[in-house]
Design a protein around this nucleic acid. Structure first.
Lengths: 332, 332
DNA sequence: TGAACTGCTGCAATTGGTTGTAATGAAGTT
DNA sequence: AACTTCATTACAACCAATTGCAGCAGTTCA
């Protein structure tokens, strides 16, 4: 039972609430003997502070919110793990919000979060409409390279990821390029596409509009899109996918229909989630340092919270890393 | 800025705080016209209630805590998704704690959670020592079939999962059984082992001690354990694994060393996480209804919270389902 | 006419802490 | 003995809500 209040301790030791409060907060100005007596009483009675009473006065909750589109997606659950762990080390709790890629839920969750008076927010938005989020009066780190005033962000250089992929596919000798993306509105997704497209064009290759497709970031979506693409009269011979789940769906379709990978078809994913490296899969993909992203986000956020003022804005762009495995041709 | 308080609304409309409070809480006894005026003012000023002030008085926080050993494990992240979603539908927030299978962190998190005055806890413990958790004065649903007074639980019938697996492996004609488990202390893990062992013995087969191994619930651990087992002078010809990640590690080792699955070696996992069904994997495994477990846990918990009193204890044991794929022999 | 009742609203206490300011008292100074 | 000085502690306001009780008109009924 944590119904023990500061008042009970005050009564038990014969001092005022104020003295107890100061003692428990390690403030100076309390006699050593008194302090000792109070701490002992607090321990004996099993005192636990009431966070809500405290934050009513101090406006601090030692709670962060993590908003992601889908916690069951291994990319986000890895980030969540790192965020949770790092936050815990700083003494912060984590409120989780999985928004199902739905901007409406995002908006609603954002409101709830603000009501909760969390100290900070780590936010991976589902889409690119930043206008919704700009009036946040709580320190926020975006996992997305949104350029918006007052918001820190941290993300991988998606453009470069697309660029590296294009160069690799060209080197491998593939000719008919396609892009099988996730949600069209996703900023990271479209940055990948841009890096890919521009690099292809720079080398004299075309990425025609009908070979650029979008859908959810799921296995199922990858499967359906490649199926549709292969049914056209000018099917691609390689694909750059919005993430590994999509690539896996594509892979699945190719295996089923007997199209050999990587000989007849080259495949590149994004994220490097753990199954990409399985011996049965061996997918070429662009790795994102997920754990690092999660812990850096917390570090950045807490620095901002504890330094007060929102003057402290950081923009961190991490390097992606193309990992060449067996779903693209060997060109050595 | 949500610095608008009930007081501001009272001033703007010329009524007392009490009336505003009653209006916003949909209490009866407020004149329709006054109510309208207040609601309008609240909207105009952008009023958002201060959760902490409210819960100080009401002792309700509309927050649940979810404690799991590892959020990056797809089994738990699927549960987390369902919990989060269901809680949201009831208007509750979710605090996430990933304990890294560490009872110390578990204990510490449990304290933090209690300080937060969450309304309820959904708790998948890392080990079987229930004594640590019995003094919880917050409604709790365990995801684990702990028989402890006053605690609800919900879990799959792990014993039956082990039993079904044993019968299947016997039917397939395997002879030299092994068990490659997760953490030794894990209750669900040992229940699976018991169901497996007892059924084998009932059919006249031995499960020798040196063929029962434990380790973390990871791919890496499965790989190392099977490696060690195959190095003995009496290697097994099949394995029942504590979960799918372990089974995947085992699979990986077998593929690398050219031991054909399922002909020479039969493999059964547990959980049926999404990669188990991939065409390249096709793992025989015991499915747990993860989403259902998550949402049922929340339903049960909220029933308990809203009905007050802890008299309402539910013990739910769900049916596991053996899903036969390609990692065990066809015996038709 | 006065009592009882109605619907509506305000007062003020309460929740569990934090914190600025004032009071206390002992020691040191003149 | 009176006056500072200093550390220590108590008082009470404050944070933003909720809520029991009382008050206050206006209406109904005996």
């Amino acid at each position: 039972m944590s119904d023990v209040t500061i008042k009970d301790i005050a009564e038990a030791t014969g001092v005022s609430y104020a003295t107890v409060s100061r003692t428990l907060n390690n403030r100076s100005g309390v006699n050593a003997a008194t302090r000792e007596k109070i701490l002992q009483a607090a321990k004996d009675l099993g005192y636990r502070p009431n966070i809500h009473a405290r934050s009513l006065k101090t406006n601090q909750t030692f709670t962060l919110a993590l908003i992601v589109p889908d916690i069951s997606n291994p990319f986000f659950s890895d980030i969540a793990l790192a965020v949770n762990k790092t936050a815990y080390q700083y003494g912060y709790n984590t409120i989780l919000c999985s928004t199902n890629w739905d901007p409406e839920i995002e908006k609603a969750q954002l409101k709830l979060i603000q009501d909760q008076r969390v100290d900070g927010i780590i936010f991976k938005p589902a889409d690119r409409s930043p206008d919704l989020y700009l009036d946040l009066n709580i320190p926020t780190v975006m996992i997305s390279n949104l350029v918006a005033n007052g918001l820190s962000f941290i993300e991988v250089d998606n453009f470069k990821g697309g660029k590296d992929t294009a160069q690799h596919l060209i080197q491998c000798g593939y000719k008919k390029f396609s892009f099988i993306g996730g949600a069209k509105e996703s900023r990271s997704n479209s940055d990948r596409l841009e890096g890919y497209r521009k690099t292809l064009e720079k080398h004299g290759y075309q990425l025609s509009e009908e070979k650029i497709r979008f859908g959810p970031f799921t296995i199922e979506s990858g499967y359906q899109i490649i199926k549709s693409l292969m049914g056209t009269n000018d099917p691609p011979d390689c694909a750059f996918c919005g993430n590994d789940l999509i690539a896996l769906g594509v892979f699945q379709y190719l295996v089923e229909t007997g199209i050999s990978v990587p000989e007849k078809f080259g495949l590149v994913g994004f994220d490097d989630v753990y199954f990409a490296s399985l011996p049965q899969i061996q997918m070429t993909t662009v790795a994102q340092p997920r754990s690092q992203m999660g812990s850096m986000a917390v570090n950045t956020l807490i620095k901002r919270i504890e330094n007060g003022s929102s003057s402290f804005v950081e923009h961190i762009l991490l390097e992606p890393k193309l990992i060449i495995r067996k779903s693209t041709r060997n060109y050595s």
